[in-house]
């Protein structure tokens, strides 16, 4: 390392030593408060005290239409439901996360090699071979699923009870419905993958609000400093922190 990098290393060390101090003040508290909150009544985005943010104005989607938004909310609430384990995908802000992702290069397929010719019927072990990109997959997949619900149940997806919604999602997962423009299984796999991303990502991306996903499984987030814990067969005691410095 060259000389000029030393001040930075010094700065890093100082920053790191601050974290445990913060930790002591908040040990256990955030986590237990969250877990004690009845899941269904959990606020959409509990903000830690002392941070400035606008009061919980509902998120307005900018990619999804109102009808698509209703589907998305109703679907993710079943994929990761609020239950005795704690808050679910809705409370974690997963729909907001997915809507925001639709404006990233990922959703346009810009991270993938998308030159033809395409062979959409290739065996699964050949990996991704479709010309569809996530934005289209959501648009086409939601429309096809809504058409199915209309035909079979004469209802929107969001209008179905939980058990029936689960049943529709299981059909998508198994690839049973033969949709014309998008394989049901492909649509479901994006929906599930992005839902898990939104439940477990850093809150900076719009999901995992209040770090509810991390708290549920015991992931400490951006702490990233475990020198003293490597060899210990015991539960790590400190709650999660986020990139922005929020504490669970």
């Amino acid at each position: 390392m060259s000389e000029q990098d030393n001040p930075r290393r010094e700065f890093l060390r100082k920053t790191l030593t601050l974290i445990p101090v913060v930790t002591v003040a908040s040990t256990g508290l955030g986590g237990s408060v969250l877990m004690a909150t009845p899941a269904a009544a959990a606020p959409a985005a509990p903000e830690p005290a002392g941070r400035t943010s606008s009061p919980a104005a509902p998120y307005e989607p900018t990619y999804f239409t109102a009808e698509e938004w209703a589907f998305l909310n109703a679907a993710v609430a079943r994929l990761i439901p609020a239950d005795e384990q704690g808050p679910g995908a809705l409370e974690a802000g997963v729909p907001e996360y997915i809507d925001r992702q639709m404006h990233t290069p990922y959703a346009s397929g810009a991270l993938w090699f998308m030159q033809g010719p395409f062979n959409a019927d290739a065996a699964p072990e050949m990996g991704w071979q479709s010309k569809l990109v996530p934005k289209q997959i959501y648009r086409l997949g939601i429309a096809a699923t809504e058409a199915l619900c209309k035909k079979v149940y004469n209802s929107t997806f969001a209008g179905l009870d939980s058990a029936t919604r689960d049943d529709v999602l299981k059909q998508l997962e198994a690839g049973t419905p033969q949709f014309e423009n998008v394989p049901a299984k492909m649509f479901f796999s994006f929906l599930l993958q992005n839902t898990k991303e939104g439940f477990f990502c850093d809150p900076i991306h719009g999901g995992n609000k209040g770090m509810v996903g991390w708290t549920m499984i015991g992931f400490p987030g951006a702490r990233a400093d475990f020198m003293d814990w490597v060899e210990r067969n015991e539960q790590y005691p400190f709650p999660a922190v986020s990139i922005r410095g929020e504490r669970a």
């Binding site: 079943r78 994929l79 990761i80 439901p81 239950d83 384990q85 679910g88 689960d166 999602l169 997962e173 599930l192 839902t195 898990k196 991303e197 477990f200 990502c201 996903g213 991390w214 549920m216 499984i217 015991g218 992931f219 539960q235 790590y236």
Partner: peptide, 28 residues
Amino acid sequence: RPIAGTSNPPGTPAWGSAWKKATADYYT
């Protein structure tokens, strides 16, 4: 890490309350 690094015993569903419970039970 939690998005790509969670794994559950064979036979666990991929979503829903059963997935949630297994993920909470086994991640660490």
